[in-house]
């Protein structure tokens, strides 16, 4: 089976965050996790590997898609594999987009793997079979094995079993099937298993993102108090609230009274998900105090709220992120803030 494989700069062995902007490079043969593809499936051959940086992929997805589609076509691939991506968000979003494009535009089976919290999952789980990689990259071998099992069935146009049996993330697809037990019997069994702490699987998956009603427009910005909030992890030097650089459980509010510019020497960044050097050089690139002060002087906005609010938005369970959001919104309401600029790295 001829395979084309996509990797980010990290798993492709090019480098870490400092190389996250590299443009797509095509390498002959297998690299990194691609070698496992060949080891675990007799007859599998990784014809070529495309490696691109996570930031390049996020910022120039269309160009990346075009490069990958051309490579998959030229290589005569019978299967496209991306990842596994685990918790890496930009990588997951890119892998999902590339698999969806290869499937839709070339009709070639495509498979990827990521952790359930990866933003790529909610974007692409309906279109793709995304293998559940868990969060631990040490399980690479097992994950690749599952990906290959799913890929082979896809390539043979064989029907796949249920998500839990095959190891892929539920796609939200309903399929009729004959069962021996009535719903009431299954329900009681499930309740029993739950009560005694045995494994059980719900037959229903709740939608993860209910619609959010849009707040009304700000009537008069020139009289409004505007606050800056960021999930990019900017904190005063020393990180006084000990905001964790990953899976943060708290947020901080930091005084900017009288400041018309944030200086790098006074701040640091607690966030392990992007190359933070540019923000550390000039924090206004994330928390735009200098420009917003100008707009305040000009009267475009009434007042800049006296603090900026910051947390670190990385690898955070949804329930936790929602709690942080609610707390921050509550605080801003109490402080009579009229509008918020949220800056995300």
């Amino acid at each position: 089976m001829r395979i084309v494989h996509y990797l980010n700069q990290f798993f492709g062995g090019v480098g870490g965050e400092e190389r996250a902007d590299i443009s797509p490079q095509v390498r002959e043969g297998a690299l990194g996790p691609g070698r496992l593809l060949e080891q675990l499936l007799p007859g599998a051959q990784v014809v070529s590997t495309v490696v691109a940086g996570d930031n390049y992929a996020a910022e120039r997805l269309d160009e990346l898609k075009a490069a990958v589609l051309a490579q998959v076509r030229d290589a005569g691939a019978e299967l496209f594999v991306a990842g596994p991506c685990f918790e890496a968000g930009r990588y997951g979003v890119a892998a999902g987009a590339l698999c969806a494009a290869v499937q839709a535009e070339l009709g070639i089976p495509a498979v990827t793997a990521m952790a359930r919290e990866n933003p790529g999952v909610d974007l692409y789980r309906q279109a793709l079979h995304i293998v559940d990689s868990g969060t631990n990259a040490a399980a690479m071998r097992e994950v690749v094995q599952k990906m290959l099992a799913v890929a082979q069935k896809l390539a043979r146009h064989e029907a796949l079993g249920k998500p839990a049996e095959e190891g892929y993330i539920p796609r939200g697809v309903l399929r009729d099937e004959f069962v021996e037990e009535t719903a009431a019997q299954r329900l009681v069994k499930m309740l029993y298993a739950k009560t005694v702490g045995e494994p059980h699987e719900s037959e229903f998956t709740a939608a993860s993102f209910p619609p959010i009603p849009a707040p009304a427009p700000v009537a008069d910005l020139s009289r409004a108090t505007v606050a800056i909030v960021t999930d990019g992890g900017l904190v005063p030097r020393g990180n006084p609230d000990k905001i964790a650089p990953s899976a943060a459980t708290n947020w901080g509010a930091y005084d900017i009274t009288g400041l018309s510019d944030l200086r790098g020497q006074d701040y640091e960044v607690s966030h392990r998900g992007y190359d933070t050097r540019y923000v550390e050089q000039d924090p206004d690139r994330l928390v735009p105090v200098d420009a917003l002060r100008e707009l305040e002087k000009e009267g475009v906005v009434g007042k800049v709220y006296q603090r900026f609010i910051s947390t670190s938005g990385l690898a955070n369970p949804l329930a936790n992120s929602r709690r942080l959001g609610r707390e921050i919104a509550q605080k801003l309401k109490e402080e009579k803030v009229d509008a918020v600029i949220l800056v995300s790295a």
């Binding site: 930031n55 996020a58 910022e59 992007y274 190359d275 540019y278 050089q281 000039d282 206004d284 790295a345």
Partner: peptide
């Protein structure tokens, strides 16, 4: 840009 949403070094 991801690493500088409000800037360009």
């Amino acid at each position: 840009g991801i690493v500088h949403p409000l800037g360009n070094p």
